[in-house]
Amino acid sequence: MNSQSLRSRRETLAHYYHKVPATVFLLFGMILFFSLLSDKYFTVSNIMNVIVQCSSGVGIVALASYLAICSTGVDLSLGGIVSLSGMITAKILTWDIPLFSQIRNNNPVFLLLIAVTAAIAAGAAIGSMNGLILARTKIPSFIVTLGMYKICETFSRVIAGGTTIRINGLPLFEFIGNGSLLNVQIGRRSIGLLPISMIIMLLLYIFFSFVMKKTRFGTYVYAIGGNNESAALSGINTVLTRYRVFLYGGMIAAFTGIIFTSRLTSASAQNGLGLEFDGIAAAVVGGAAMSGGRSTPGRTLIGALIISVMKNGFNMIGMSNSIQMIAIGCVLIAVVSVDTLRNRRRFV
């Protein structure tokens, strides 16, 4: 067979069809299912609603979960980081000490920059604590990140001081979570087609797709996930890579904290707690294996969308919270078992 016919065969539709992950069909199936049950489901406003819910909740956290799972760990501290970073943002924006009051009056944009930087720095600090302990000791990531989660929750609660911090009169900050670049008028409501939170989420996903595919770090993460021993023997600095995975995870989760606080224009210590399990569910539905080394950021995004579509859909067709939990559990088990059974057949 000459090379030309090979190339033409590669470029057939069937080839691209096989490249599409099966979860895409699940996602569209679900959207179809909910559209049939509720006529309000497949509308522009609701679709944008799902996307904003995704990007201010499970969407970005799922990326951090995926990184941890890909390197055979699990990061339970993400929910705590979301809560803490959101709280720090709110606190700095509303703190009544002379320094911050002055900046707030003179240059609110600068204050916003300080708040966002501080939130991401807090995420990085918690993430690097995770990473330092995990890279240097053999304590399971479950335990370390669980401990860190509790530490984050404490700091968040202490900063909150038992109340909800409300942020008023900072339209620029509210724009992060609620704003949009392109608005259309449908009926009486104005709907944003390019929400800022979605753009942030997509940028993070595009950036990490690039990182995981094209940089040394990405290859190292897959190598560690595949086989830690052989990765170490082939000269990969596994300690540093593991450290960076959790450092980046913390920073990514901090973005969710900022968006979450901005969307609610308030921060309470409860915000974001529990998101870590949603993130794990999303990453796994997207195709990540707990044994590490599988899936991509793109697939994780599909997983996060599936979780968001399900939560929103069950609300729209008037199902209670309890049915939602049962459905998410069932879908998780079903998707993962189909995935494992397919893989077993391929390799065994």
Binding site: V284, M290, M325, I326, G329, L332, I333, V336, T340, L341
Partner: peptide, 17 residues
């Protein structure tokens, strides 16, 4: 053949639901 973490997490969701 589910990993125990996921199996029991899924079952936990269903049971609490």
């Amino acid at each position: 053949h589910l990993p125990p973490f996921l199996a029991t997490f899924g079952v936990q969701q269903i049971v609490r639901g």
